[in-house]
Design a protein around this nucleic acid. Structure first.
Lengths: 212, 212
DNA sequence: CGCAGTTCTTAACTAAAGTCAATGAACGCC
DNA sequence: GGCGTTCATTGACTTTAGTTAAGAACTGCG
């Protein structure tokens, strides 16, 4: 049902990408780094693999060896670690964000974390082989890809910095500004863990804030 | 004086990179992602720009717009933010680590942080233009570079996760394991700030630990 | 050597997060 | 609609970090 919407529409005259297709999310992302002609966008949309996942489905589990890469077209993916029986959330990926299921490029090591769908989600999926073929077909995108990864690296380092710099309360206020959607999409105990605190503390922080 | 050591040695018969040259640090780094022939290594060493910095020198200051990239051949670079008169350290870069002086690829925005030399340091230095020329000369390294950035992204995300997952004490113990050299190279109040706590707290943590 | 500046430690006190336990609210399920 | 599960809140208490201030240890320099 949802899966139907992910097929790129084809017209007999001129191929176009349906403006409501979730794949637009990826095309837009790429366009940031490299302008794309309509025809190219259609080609890309045909080439990439798209898959729907149900809420609760896992992309990776701890101990699995994965070399897959995802990109969120629709939905929300949660990264978490399982430590003495407790889930500790360390990241959320939503529309327009790339998701790597591994922590380093070569060493195909067992994953230390889980990736699971917070909602029904539509993702692009790519293996290392898919990637190689992709760049063979679209060599123009190799530098664009490097730029994209550099951009993500910058964001990640900025996020780490802001985490070091601020208190849990400040982190919560910051999240309110930068990713307000998460507050509605995600249960509070997962947010708390993402902020590095316990659910009880988040409750108190929220109370403290409303009292001001 | 130090600068002398950074010139690649040349022999009349066959060019070789001096085994003690700091540039070896970069060659080794690249080799992780793409095997290099000796001749290539020499070419790379000739192409890249190397510069020495004195302890205390700044690579970037807050408000400056930089598009430079560095790689630490020798020494230690500290990243810090200045917040109401207080320096908050958010990263240390040592031998074999790439350093970006900006937070995002295109938007040439004013830097929010400082980068300064904790010790006398030898770095490679590259502008966006240098980079373009470099990949023109060594196209083989374009995918290697993407892999390298992916690797750094993985590390950065892993670091953020470990930061979220652990308490200040655990972070300190972890640092002891993963970067013991920093303890000798860097004053404790900077380490404290890097751990997200005050120097007094680090003192207490250290005391707590020795009592066990 | 002695002095000055910086860094590290200690102590007393405050503020905030962790822990444990109980209660409420929201949701899905029969 | 009633029941059970899960999630959010609240309270009492413990632990840890922040704050302020003082003194000790170390460093570099005249």
């Amino acid at each position: 049902m949802i899966a139907n919407t992910v097929k790129a529409q084809q017209s007999p005259v001129k191929e176009k990408l349906h403006p409501n297709s979730p794949v637009q999310e990826l095309i837009q992302y790429i366009s940031q780094f490299m302008p794309l002609a309509e025809a190219e966008a259609v080609e890309i949309a045909k080439t990439i693999k798209v898959k729907s996942f149900e809420k609760g489905a896992h992309l990776v589990k701890e101990g699995q060896v994965s070399r897959l890469c995802y990109f969120v077209l629709k939905g929300c993916i949660r990264q978490y670690y399982l430590m003495d029986g407790e889930e500790k959330t360390t990241n959320f990926f939503t529309e327009g964000q790339p998701v790597t299921a591994y922590e380093g490029t070569f060493k195909r090591k067992a994953s230390k974390f889980y990736l699971s769908c917070v909602e029904d989600s539509i993702l692009t999926i790519g293996s290392a082989e898919d990637e190689a073929l992709f760049f063979q077909k679209f060599p123009r995108l190799e530098p664009a890809s490097r730029m994209a990864v550099e951009e993500e690296l910058g964001k990640s380092q900025g996020l780490l910095s802001s985490y070091i710099l601020s208190s849990p309360e400040e982190r919560y206020l910051n999240l309110l500004q930068t990713r307000p959607d998460l507050l509605d999409r995600v249960p509070q105990y997962q947010l708390a863990s993402y902020l590095g605190i316990k659910p009880e503390s988040l409750s108190r922080i929220r109370k403290r804030i409303t009292l001001k």
